[in-house]
């Protein structure tokens, strides 16, 4: 494996020193992947690890229906939470980011208030607050008992991240030279049209790297929703540990799964970024 990769990177015989070649080779990835494969082999050969892993990630421990989607295990629940909360943050953040650069004082101050408020509260506190204050309040106020903790958790994570993404979008919009807006306006486009057709397409392209960074961060922060008993990886690990008293196996398995997912996400995100860059 090492030899094959080393060979493909030097199709042109560049005059690089041994040190430079070593510097460029992704040794860190080799180490992590080797470690993960080793850990995986060790885990599946050990019955108590096998139990922990399968309890958290593999067989349908219980079926959770959320927004009409079956989520069968901790692994799926983590992915589901991450994706839905990220989509909420992506859309709400865009709206807020546009409001942040608006000349309309109401839109500007409302969005700024939101962003500062949300960024001023730790994500964990926000999720607990929504889970144990807002959701029960809504249940009582509307008499609708079907509002789930999961929905509250998704909203907490999504709305909290929206504040951070709003700032990413805002910086992207502000990085576009003033002349672009002027050129669009001088052609008779309205502010909204100029935003839609000229500014945002360029701004969003520029913020793909920070946005995808936040996707990976969101994946890790999804563990926070375990505090409101959403059965994702960490919560299932806690459940496993409380039932078996095997903390080692339970939490090692959880850490292992998060690491695998994070690496996978980073690889996917890099591929998407490369595609975006080559399309410009």
């Amino acid at each position: 494996m090492t030899e094959a990769e080393g060979g493909s990177t030097t199709t042109i015989k560049a005059r690089r020193s041994f040190g430079e070649q070593m510097r460029e080779f992704p040794w860190w990835a080799v180490i992590i992947i080797t470690f993960l494969i080793g850990a995986f082999i060790y885990m599946i050969s050990d019955p108590s690890y096998r139990n922990a892993l399968s309890f958290i990630a593999f067989p349908p421990t219980k079926t959770e229906i959320a927004f009409g989607i079956d989520v069968r295990n901790g692994l799926m629940m983590t992915l589901y939470t991450t994706v839905i909360a990220y989509l909420i943050a992506l859309i709400l953040g865009l709206v807020l980011g546009i409001m942040r650069v608006s000349r309309n004082p109401i839109l500007y101050h409302l969005s700024t208030l939101y962003v500062e408020l949300m960024r001023g509260v730790p994500m964990l506190v926000l999720i607990i607050w929504i889970g144990f204050v807002v959701v029960p309040f809504l249940r009582n106020a509307t008499g609708n008992q079907s509002i789930t903790g999961l929905q509250g958790a998704l909203i907490g994570l999504g709305f909290g991240y929206a504040a951070y993404l709003a700032e990413v979008y805002r910086s992207g919009i502000e990085s576009i030279p003033k002349g672009q807006m002027e050129a669009a306006r001088s052609l008779g486009m309205g502010y909204g049209q100029a935003m839609q057709y000229v500014i945002l397409p360029q701004a969003i392209r520029r913020v793909v790297p920070p946005l995808s960074n936040d996707l990976v961060a969101m994946l890790k922060d999804s563990a926070l929703v375990s505090v409101v008993a959403v059965p994702e990886i960490l919560q299932m690990a806690r459940l496993y540990v409380s039932r078996t008293f095997r903390a080692f196996e339970g939490y090692n398995s959880a850490a292992f799964l998060y690491l695998v997912l994070t690496l996978l996400f980073i690889i996917i995100v890099r591929m998407i970024e490369r595609r975006w860059r080559s399309s410009v």
Binding site: P177, G179, Q180, E182, R185, S186, L187, G188
Partner: peptide
């Protein structure tokens, strides 16, 4: 503005 074309020093193409 639609009736008034403008050409900029820095081109400002999209």
């Amino acid at each position: 503005r639609a009736e008034i074309g403008m050409v900029f020093q820095q081109f400002n193409l999209f």
